[in-house]
Design a protein around this nucleic acid. Structure first.
Lengths: 396, 396
DNA sequence: TTGAAAGCGCTAACAT
DNA sequence: ATGTTAGCGCTTTCAA
């Protein structure tokens, strides 16, 4: 006979965080009448040295209900799911007892039996910060609305964790996956398993531009348009020497924003000297660095369009320290519409990324794929960002 | 024979978001050799009007492996889980084929059979913002480290959603639950189901102070100490008329912070006139409101301790607009250590809530309960917050 | 309208 | 060291 402390082997154990959202209503079951199962009870010693007998907490099952009502499990199941061919009377009886016994359907079993988990997977680089929680929230709401569960994984920008998370999601039998790639991901073989299983995949925000095959459905932001709008706005305000802070150019978002910057300058008859473009891993510190550097030019800029809000803050601090007035002398526009852009002084104009809409759209695309299995991948959806003009760039 | 389009009834369907984190390693399976099941194949019409034949994507199962290797499913299962009593040779063979066939264990089935999902549930008011994502991240990391899955629900501060989420978590067969209550929650009957099932429960951050019974294990921040430290710091810097912005006093966090403020004043021989305490639903706007009001006093304050960072920003804006220098004339200290406190000018001193530590501790408490089923609830853990002194309150 | 029976994929007790 | 058997709780044919 096995000892009490025998724990199951953990080799396969996997670690996940599951974010759940309610929406679909099912009346909550309510109270009393424990039927005890025949399964063994456990005895355990509390830390005080006290011996406490535990009755194995029994969770009421459909079988229990069936027995109690003298019905078959199938009928009970049907009654509970609102199957039309069950008499109202029976449904009533079943529902009442279910309430009384606090019946809670075991979703694991249901999903296993049905062969579908009714769950969609989401893989993001982070769950902290501004952007991803907002997108996830959008996903949550839309999924909720359409009666789907959502599982989210975070890759921490690490390809290996991304691989594991994909595995986890597949093992959890998700019906579709939404992915925003880790910035380091260059090899996409871990998505083979997804394709092999026929699981629909939709990329959002961070996508693989050269990923071949049928799995390129995507929802992205039109970074080019956002940057273009920002720079066009600056030109319209009369700024003439517009600088640009760019993130690493191997990332499509920064490449596109850079191009939008260049195109807007060109279309407004402005020059785009190399010296006005500062490329770095953008954060507050590199923002100050970049601004200092720009201020040392023979002809310093009269505006900065930063590919990132944090760097914009850094730039503003340097400008203020050097006695430049914002926006009178120098204008600043950021990108992302982070919460703090409305809190600085002056408030920072920024390009909003439509986080919520992105999440919502990604879910919709996935559902479309889900409904038409085997159909061609959908053309990418490109969301138009919104320029929010605040104090830092408005001098007219 | 049922038609193609017959969809399952949705009455029970529930909506959730699942956040997963990897940590525990299991080598990822890799490539080739589809065995087709005998299950029916589906035909579907693509949107183009094209008829596409789909082979039902077959996911390799343990049974498949067993058949292919001429072993019993049990042996394969044991080999895969690293059971010691399986010969190395067999393990090798099994693992190899599993790789080749891209075997992915069905966690649903495993959890169902084992009777334990290896998952802990988390219920928070929001997943956006600063605090909760950080706490969740802490939870994620610790759970990950100890080989547990985590499911998170957001209640949107709504009791009804909180109820549903608790149901969802229970239906998902979680082994324990971490809860931060919705601010509107007054009735706790939805936690009865949790107690009834014997599922351990740990509250964090927002707790029920008067909730009776064995389910009061909790992890909270010592708000009183945080407020006390902030105000003591202000007194130490020579400020004498210290005002306080408080949130609604029916919430324990604000009540405790208010008390900490009062106690610190008393201990430093300072008076605490009613007129210096401004109570409101704290945000940037009410912060400006409160500050304007305070500035109109016959004897305006020379420092403000705000129970919330946003209101502190609002206060600073008003102060600057009125030509008061910060911190020379008036000091400001906030609470929460939001990211933007380091970005404003001047940067704002604030009380850090140890988000990460809170998540980590909550998981540890839960695991303790999990390991000692039936033992008494644990005494609440009180975390000491950390005062971060920044520019807004440092004049010495 | 209801019941009987089978089985989703996996694991574990009990053989061998 | 491996196989046999049974069953987690639910859904779903198929039959009555």
């Amino acid at each position: 006979m096995p000892g009490l402390a025998e724990l199951p082997d953990r080799t396969w154990q996997q670690c996940q965080i599951v974010l759940m959202f309610t929406a679909c209503a099912r009346p909550a079951p309510c109270l009393l009448l424990p039927i005890f199962s025949a399964r063994p009870t456990r005895a355990s010693t509390a830390s005080t040295g006290f011996l406490i007998r535990m009755k194995a907490p029994h969770r009421t099952s459909i079988t229990d209900l069936a027995r109690a009502l003298n019905l078959s499990p199938s009928t009970v199941s049907r009654a509970l799911t609102g199957h039309p061919q069950v008499s109202e009377a029976t449904k009533q009886r079943v529902r009442e007892l279910a309430e009384q016994l606090h019946f809670q359907p075991n979703q694991l079993a249901a999903a296993l039996r049905r062969g579908r988990s009714n769950t969609i997977g989401v893989l993001v680089p982070y769950i902290t910060g501004h952007f991803f929680p907002e997108v996830v929230n959008g996903i949550a709401i839309e999924a909720s609305r359409t009666g789907h569960n959502v599982m989210i994984c975070q890759s921490n920008e690490d390809v290996r964790q991304e691989q594991r998370n994909i595995e986890l999601l597949m093992n959890a039998q998700v019906e579709g996956i939404l992915v925003s790639l880790a910035s380091t991901t260059q090899d996409f073989s871990h998505f083979d398993a997804v394709r092999r299983a026929g699981t629909p995949l939709v990329f959002f925000d961070r996508i693989v531009e050269d990923m071949a095959g049928p799995y390129t459905s995507a929802v992205v932001l039109d970074d080019h348009a956002g940057a273009y709008a920002a720079v066009a706005h600056l030109a319209g305000q009369g700024y003439r020497r517009i600088a640009h802070f760019s993130g690493p150019l191997h990332l499509n978002i920064h490449r596109n924003r850079h191009q939008g910057y260049l195109d807007a300058l060109r279309d407004h008859g402005l020059s785009a000297p190399e010296e006005l473009v500062f490329v770095a891993d953008l954060n507050q510190e590199t923002g100050t660095l970049g601004m200092r550097q720009l201020l040392q030019l023979a002809e310093p800029p009269d505006a900065v369009f930063s590919s990132n809000d944090l760097a914009a803050v850094g730039a503003m601090q340097v400008l203020k320290a050097h006695g430049r007035r914002i926006p009178a002398d120098v204008a600043v526009v950021g990108f992302s519409n982070e919460a703090f852009t409305a809190l600085t002084e002056p408030t920072i104009s920024s390009v909003d990324q439509r986080c919520h809409l992105m999440g919502l759209t990604a879910v919709q695309q996935l559902l479309r794929l889900l409904e038409a299995p085997g159909s061609a991948p959908l053309p990418p959806v490109v969301l138009t960002p919104e320029l929010l003009v605040r104090a830092s760039s408005q001098r007219l």
